[in-house]
Design a protein around this nucleic acid. Structure first.
Length: 125
DNA sequence: CTTCTTACA
DNA sequence: TGTAAGAA
């Protein structure tokens, strides 16, 4: 099995992930509700996170600390998946640009409240 | 004892 | 987000 498979292997309980990410169980579950991470489940319905999931959570945590909301983070992560179907990574330059735009959006410097998904997409490109 | 879901401050 | 409840 290759690296990709290993990184996607469901291995950690939410308790381990809490320690690894420094996030609360509440947050970890909440981000799942918002489709930011997709942990597997055991037969007993227990969540199992992979290295990939942990990486995503750390990224979410970082973005959150930069003042970006879940919607913005979702777009950024979705963009990365779109641009990186496999491994190729998004340039730091592009990430900074998306973060800057998100911050502007948040600050409301361009009339926030109800920007539609379509506009949001164009906004990020 | 840990985790899950649901609901409420 | 935190936390309480009751179940698993």
């Amino acid at each position: 099995m290759d690296d990709q498979e290993r990184r996607s292997m469901p291995l950690f309980s939410i308790g381990i992930v809490k320690k690894l990410t420094e996030l609360t169980a509440r947050q970890i579950r909440y981000y799942e509700e918002n489709a930011l991470v997709f942990p597997e489940r055991t037969t007993g319905n227990q969540r199992l996170y992979s290295f990939h999931d942990v990486d995503r959570l750390l990224e979410i945590k970082d973005l959150l600390e930069r003042g970006i909301n879940l919607a913005g983070i979702k777009h950024i992560l979705t963009e990365k998946e779109h641009k990186n179907p496999k491994d190729a990574r998004v340039t730091d330059k592009k990430v900074r640009k998306m973060i800057r735009n998100e911050l502007l959006f948040e600050t409301g410097k361009m009339g926030k409240s109800n920007m539609l998904q379509g506009e949001m997409s164009r906004f990020f490109h």
